[in-house]
């Protein structure tokens, strides 16, 4: 009963257009940013290295290298501040959390690109 009521409450905060992407994907995260009374879109590009949580608490972590320094940002999946998430590239991965990427530098950070099995016409 409790869980049903909680789900009911969360329903109102869940977004209808949940961004579809997988761990290992390279994505552009478009976030709405309020500057004074003006709204603009900021884009954060990087590799999704983890997804966590469920319901309204679902989060995803995006990692990128900025000026030789690793930067990770964690976004709430259902936040209205996330305008959209664009998948640029899909990587082949065999685990749910890509924390091993944190220990890698340079070319080793790259993931093998996922290719469709269907032959290209």
């Amino acid at each position: 009963m409790s869980q049903k009521l909680l789900a009911l409450v969360e329903q109102s905060s869940l977004r209808e257009d949940v961004p579809q992407f997988n761990v290992g994907d390279t994505v552009d995260v478009h976030t709405r940013i309020l500057e004074g009374d003006k709204e603009r879109i900021q884009i954060f590009t990087g590799t999704v290295i983890a997804k966590s949580g469920s319901g309204t608490r679902a989060m995803f972590t995006v990692r990128r290298i900025v000026a030789g320094e690793g930067v990770e940002r964690k976004f709430p999946l259902h936040s209205p501040k996330i305008a959209k998430v664009e998948v640029k590239r899909s990587g082949v991965v065999r685990r749910a959390k890509l924390y091993f990427l944190r220990d890698r530098v340079g070319k080793a950070v790259r993931l093998r690109e996922k290719r469709d099995n269907a032959p290209q016409a």
Binding site: L6, V9, G55, T56, P80
Partner: peptide, 14 residues
């Protein structure tokens, strides 16, 4: 008491 969770308001604050 039913339990705890998280909701967003219109401005996106959790």
């Amino acid at each position: 008491k039913v339990g705890m969770t998280q909701v967003f308001d219109e401005s996106g604050r959790a």
